[in-house]
Design a protein around this nucleic acid. Structure first.
Lengths: 156, 156
DNA sequence: TTGCTGTTGCGAAGGGGTTGCAGGAAGGCG
DNA sequence: CGCCTTCCTGCAACCCCTTCGCAACAGCAA
């Protein structure tokens, strides 16, 4: 609660807002709301979860608006998405990489649906192998790997 | 066209039919139709493609039936599916593995949507690594990897 | 051949996401 | 400061894919 570094969420929102403005987009409350929610979010919320979260603080905001806002933010590279076995999850792009595309790799538990982040280089070996043998340019961050997390593997 | 090895498609259909019968399921024309289509299919058709293909030879077959048939075949382990970035693809399980679960790994080109098969062990290293570091039990065959195939990587 | 029971076809409903349109607000400009 | 243009939002209808309920049909065993 000191002066510097105060409220990282607000700082993130301002950063994104500035980015929007620079690219000729208008700053509206719904957009702030979505960015704010993403900045606060832990993990990788789906559109549905984002909308629910937004609705708690800014009631009346329409689901359509969430979709369109995410689309706009994605075009700017501010937001990244991952395809899960069911649905798509969104999260703010790594601030440091600001458009450089330093995403991380994701894995999703098919039982509890939780998403975990993996070190970025974990698929490097496979990527090289695929490039050499198949000429396939793997994009490791676009789709989540599937499996069972520690907890679910133990229980189930 | 000799006596032995004649029409591998028919042979596959008969094998699956026998499997169905063994498990107390009835042999119907729609089921033969779906299996036949899958046996003929190159690649990894979606429900839509399967239905279209079936409709050409057995007009009047309802889409619902395709879904239900695939579901039945999947329960028997005769059919496997992969989640793609958009949609789900079905294919006959590896005959040799007949229920043993020896699936292969898939990768999908995000540009041309083609699916390519990869050697089963290509993710073994990653699987071991994830198991050790995260306790995550990777299931390599359940979701397709994403990237660009040789052709699209060159063109685009 | 007869009868039981699993399957099919159909219509309708459900869920998720997208699109078109008219009103409303952001922000540039006078 | 206030107007005006343009973009954005809210709403509702729509579309696509999948599943469900029900009545009729057809395997297959006896």
């Amino acid at each position: 609660m000191s002066t510097r570094g105060q409220d990282p969420v607000a700082a993130t929102v301002e950063r994104v807002v500035a980015h929007l403005r620079e690219h000729g987009h208008r700053i509206t409350m719904p957009r702030r709301a979505v960015v704010d929610t993403l900045a606060r979010a832990e993990g990788h919320p789906t559109v549905e979860q984002i909308a629910a979260d937004v609705a708690e603080r800014w009631p009346g905001m329409h689901l359509t608006t969430v979709y369109r806002t995410l689309e706009t933010l994605a075009e700017l590279g501010v937001v990244t998405h991952v395809h899960l076995a069911a649905g798509t999850a969104y999260h703010l792009a790594d601030p440091a990489s600001a458009g450089a595309g330093t995403h991380h790799v994701h894995a999703q538990c098919r039982s509890c649906r939780r998403v975990i982040d993996l070190p970025d280089g974990i698929l490097d070996g496979v990527r090289r192998e695929l490039a050499a043998s198949e000429g396939f340019a793997l994009e490791p961050h676009h789709v989540a790997l599937s499996g069972l997390c520690r907890g679910c593997a133990a229980t189930g």
